[in-house]
Amino acid sequence: MSDAKPIDPAGALERLLTIMARLRSPDGGCPWDVQQTMQSLTRYTLEEAYEAVDAIERNAPDDIKDELGDLLFQIVFYAQIGAEQKLFDFTAIANAISDKMVRRHPHVFARAMTDETKLAEQWEAIKATERQQQSGGKPAPAALLDSVPTGLPALMYAQKIQKKCARVGFDWPDFAPVLDKVREEIDEIQAELAVKQINHAALEAEIGDALFALVNVARHCQVDADAALRRASLKFSRRFGQVEALATARHGSLYGLELAELEALWQQVKADETKAS
């Protein structure tokens, strides 16, 4: 196999597919790669997807390129296993998604003009037709929410099922009653914490309800709940790193400080950020 780097997408993809086949070869391939199955790869696929998201959030082009490459390698890995098992190959995967995108975008490829507000309805109608065709022409038995994968991250799963329900009219008219619902759920959490012997299962349920309501607020405000929490977590991590640096500079260590001392450092970091902006 030539080490020359192709200069076109088709050549680069062919090089990657050839490398993958070599890695999976029982004759001189990599023992680890040969042992993998579709099931064993799923955890790595999730990790690579999150690492790609992290690189994008950090706006680091070189890292984005590398992480997207790792993610593409996962797809190629599944394609190679599928080909070995005579189930599908990379060509079948690429053609399947191309066919789906053309089919689901008649307003682009068939010049079937539609109002922008009707695009979501058109998308769902086409998906419903696809499900009916896949079931041999019989009405699709799946319930409305059955098409949402339960293995999604919790925030994303909540937002997707809420969005599905909203499309059939099961939704609050605006964000005001949703905020009321959040306050109601917070009150119920406080009620659970007020008892002498806390019922942890009930407490978990109330916290879950509150989180679900907050996701609903985010959706009504056209905010992606998962992205919002990710950015809040990154902000907290950055600020706490500065707290740790200040604590080390002033006291030699972060450990052993009282909460009031840590809070004072935290407020200073926030104040410094405000001045810098």
Rank of each mutant, 00 (worst) to 15 (best):
R239M: 05
E51T: 08
F77T: 12
W123C: 08
G11Y: 08
A225W: 06
A210L: 07
R230N: 12
K275Y: 05
F73P: 01
K5A: 10
K181R: 15
A60W: 00
G69L: 02
V108M: 12
P61N: 01
K196F: 01
A128F: 00
D89Y: 00
A166E: 15
L203K: 06
D89K: 03
A92P: 03
W172A: 15
G256F: 02
Q268L: 14
E263Q: 14
W123H: 15
P173C: 01
V108K: 06
Q267G: 04
A158S: 10
D8V: 03
K100I: 05
A110G: 13
L179E: 13
D115R: 15
A166I: 08
A55C: 06
L68C: 11
F109L: 10
A271H: 14
V76M: 05
A276S: 15
L211Q: 09
L71C: 02
A264D: 15
D62A: 04
G137Y: 06
P177V: 11
H220N: 07
Y44D: 13
L41W: 06
T91A: 13
H200Y: 05
G256E: 09
K118M: 13
L23K: 11
V223R: 07
L262E: 10
H105R: 14
I198Y: 00
E185C: 02
P149M: 01
K65H: 01
A21I: 00
D62S: 05
A228N: 03
T37I: 04
I81Y: 04
D63L: 09
N95M: 10
Y78T: 06
H220M: 04
L155E: 03
I189T: 01
C165G: 07
I207S: 08
V195M: 07
R239E: 12
L203C: 07
H251Y: 14
A225G: 05
T37F: 02
A94C: 05
D187M: 09
Q134F: 06
E67G: 02
N199T: 02
P173S: 04
L17I: 01
G252W: 12
